[in-house]
Nucleic acid binder design. Sequence first.
DNA 1: TTGAAAGCGATACCAT
DNA 2: ATGGTATCGCTTTCAA
Lengths: 339, 339
Amino acid sequence: MVRSSPTVRKVADHAGVSIATVSRVTRRPDLVASDTRERVERAISELGYRPSHFGQALVDRRHSAIGVVFPGLSGPYYYDVIQGFEAEAIAARLSVLILGTHHVRNDEQVLDMATRVDGIAVLGGTASEETIRTLARQGMPLALLAQHPVDDVPAVRVDNYAAMYDLTSHLLDTHGYESIVFLGDPTNSPDLTDRWNGLVAAHRARRRTPPAEPIKIGIDQPNGLKTVARLLASTNSPRAIVCANDETALGAYAAAAAAGVRIPEDLALTGFDDIPMAGLVSPGLTTVSQPMRELGACVAQILLAQIRGDRPIPPDVILATTLLIRGSCGCRDGPNSPT
Amino acid sequence: MVRSSPTVRKVADHAGVSIATVSRVTRRPDLVASDTRERVERAISELGYRPSHFGQALVDRRHSAIGVVFPGLSGPYYYDVIQGFEAEAIAARLSVLILGTHHVRNDEQVLDMATRVDGIAVLGGTASEETIRTLARQGMPLALLAQHPVDDVPAVRVDNYAAMYDLTSHLLDTHGYESIVFLGDPTNSPDLTDRWNGLVAAHRARRRTPPAEPIKIGIDQPNGLKTVARLLASTNSPRAIVCANDETALGAYAAAAAAGVRIPEDLALTGFDDIPMAGLVSPGLTTVSQPMRELGACVAQILLAQIRGDRPIPPDVILATTLLIRGSCGCRDGPNSPT
DNA sequence: TTGAAAGCGATACCAT
DNA sequence: ATGGTATCGCTTTCAA
């Protein structure tokens, strides 16, 4: 069957008016006499007419849509960011196109998306700098999320380096761990690269020896569980593990439970993000809270500002993080009981 | 700044040819003399030209894109489904538009998406039947995922009722539980409605009294944890809980661990979906495995078939599930140790 | 208040 | 092999 949603012309015929009048009814109803308008509106609802976006886009030379490129679509972190992004977009009456690259760079799809939207938010590591520059050169409004600015392309992020420096310092100073294992693969992830560097720097500042390498794993529950289970079974299993995010740490909780290893007595554990589960497990997960919804909202606003033509655009917005000390690092747990 | 990605005209001027020739180079390069072609190709890459989708869409009267509407974007279930869906779409050279409705019906956004794509897959409960009928009447290719067919709109799903009937029967017969609590809110979710009905029917078939109501909660880890923590603290806490999906069950594991309740000795637990974590926790989670990737792929294929105009379209595809008995129901756990 | 017509970007038919 | 031009759906300017 051929797609045949009604067009302006069909509605115009149905209502016995010109296509110009139909268009006016949908865009500037005040310009149309009320009886004519009623007739047209009836035709519109009878036929279920909606102006085709490509017709409008062609005239307006904009798509009334913005896009966001994510490495994955799984997990609470992305979910909150998308929510913040969408809320801003909807308030501005724009549609949102989401592209999940599944943790592989996919420049072709990003360029394709670029022909369907008025602006694109790129999450750290999902598009090459070359692609970003190509789009920027064409005047495509862009905003980077969770990565450093590229040339004149603005970025929104948190200071992952400082946050991880502080968190590591807490483990090193307050709890006296000698050296702390880092779980998570910084490859292609500016966020994780900064976190790893923060951990290394905190060691160096105290003349401690940081681990030679991060343990490069995908940052989700299954990988956290499997890897920590393996570590706990090895001869010199670590006393303290810094996980690159909360979900990896949650996997570590399961591994510890299975191995009969107590947190924090036998193993100190920390996460990053402060997802809803982090405060509910027991002991509570010591982590760094990021304003995820705000990150998404802010990057959308920066896109909108560019589309509107506002100037200047803030080139590098850094939102604040909070170190959240709960029980998993060895501190006494706060009153965040699961209820 | 005004968006100004290069158009056919700019490229044509740059290369000193007509716009028709530029179009030929991108669509039927064999029709263009090699030296002209080279000149045009150089102009294209210098200007970073990509044919605008709305121009093409206008002529072709199709968008070269298909859409998928999801209740949420969080969690392994949706992730796998999307992966399967995207793989098919990419193979057919179509872009994918994803719409997350965040567990509220959002007909307006679905109708908006309809003006940007050639076909839409709707996941159970994300669009009203009225909207589905409206789109179907206009000839929009549609496919339903995880819900029953609506009129002539085809559906792809698993037999949730039968799967839950079998799972509940196992708990009732093999492990002898009297009555089993169901965790999850069936409202607006055809999938969960079928699961709840399956649990009730399995009770009735044995003249047992099913619970009067499901415990209506969102089916994620935090809700699972909080709710089970509350149940375990109550006076007659349940001996067996059927969770509407695995993530809810994973939250229940954390609640049990915190309360010192042993699984399965003190509390039997089951899930649904068989996400990666289900086989890794200890004891392994007894659950029902769904072919999630295949569900996504199949629904995409049905969309593609409609777009191509194939006939007939299978009206109701039901994919097989597998009952996965692990340790959390009380059976002896298999050899799925976390390694 | 309404209609006729130009034009947005790309394609494909018809000429040349 | 290449160019001119009508066309897709819609909006908007200009006339009436």
